[in-house]
Design a binder for these strands. Structure first.
Length: 218
DNA sequence: ATATCGATTATCT
DNA sequence: GATAATCGATATG
């Protein structure tokens, strides 16, 4: 298995803040195929490709944390775009979002699944997974709670960090990859506003989370 | 393959 | 006091 790789070998550019200063639906769709990167020790990093996202629309979206206005927890959503909103849920898991839209408009995109590109061994240790073959890989980053654990993301450490800057240690980059077969379905695991199709995924990608009936084929 | 359930805590009413 | 943008284990077809 590949370990994390030297940072200088990465041929990918940080995604600029202007990318996130848009409607969360557009951001969620166009984030598919981008890379999430985590700086490690000795100029190494973890890398994984974004394969599943969900858009949350802010004040007009009953399922969004921002729906009822600013609170200490969700304050980051009301700040500038391109920053991490990390929250703790079910007593066990963290979820990672990136803020969207201009200051004051609290839209965001939830990261639901990633496909590992580098650093699988480190992710496996963090997840407590024994890798016996390729079929085990989705257990690393296939799901919102799994990917944050694999990347060592916590609210205490990473909430409000700047995802457009490598100096934050957690950032989003573009290596030119453009996915085909993008699909849209209802969001997963929410009780309100279930009718909207705001979940975006790459068809046939084995890292996409959730039941198969919600993973439409091309 | 699909369904149900328990874990465990920050957050808000 | 209730709820939750989840996961993993267990049960059943």
């Amino acid at each position: 298995m590949k370990d994390s790789v030297p940072l200088r070998k990465l041929d990918a550019r940080p995604v600029p803040r202007s990318f996130f200063n848009r409607d969360p639906r557009r951001v969620a769709r166009e984030l598919l195929g981008k890379l999430l990167l985590r700086a490690g020790k000795n100029k190494t990093f973890l890398a994984a490709r974004i394969v599943e996202t969900e858009a949350y629309l802010g004040l007009s979206d009953p399922a969004a944390h921002a729906f009822n206005g600013v609170t200490p927890r969700n304050a980051v959503l009301f700040g500038p775009p391109g920053h991490a909103y990390v929250y703790f849920i079910y007593g066990t898991h963290f979820c990672l979002n990136v803020t969207c839209q201009p200051l004051g408009k609290p839209g965001c995109v939830l990261f639901r699944a990633l496909e590992p590109v580098a650093g699988e061994e480190i992710m496996a240790v963090r997840r407590g997974v024994v890798l016996t073959g390729p079929r085990d890989l989705p257990k690393l980053t296939g799901g919102p709670g799994r990917l944050t654990q694999a990347f060592g993301i916590t609210r205490q450490q990473d909430n409000a960090c700047d995802l457009t800057s490598p100096s934050s240690g957690l950032w989003i980059a573009d290596d030119g990859f453009r996915p085909s077969g993008i699909r849209r379905t209802p969001r997963i695991g929410i009780r309100k506003a279930k009718d909207h199709r705001l979940r975006y995924l790459i068809a046939n990608n084995p890292f996409v989370s959730g039941p198969k009936r919600l993973n439409p084929q091309p």
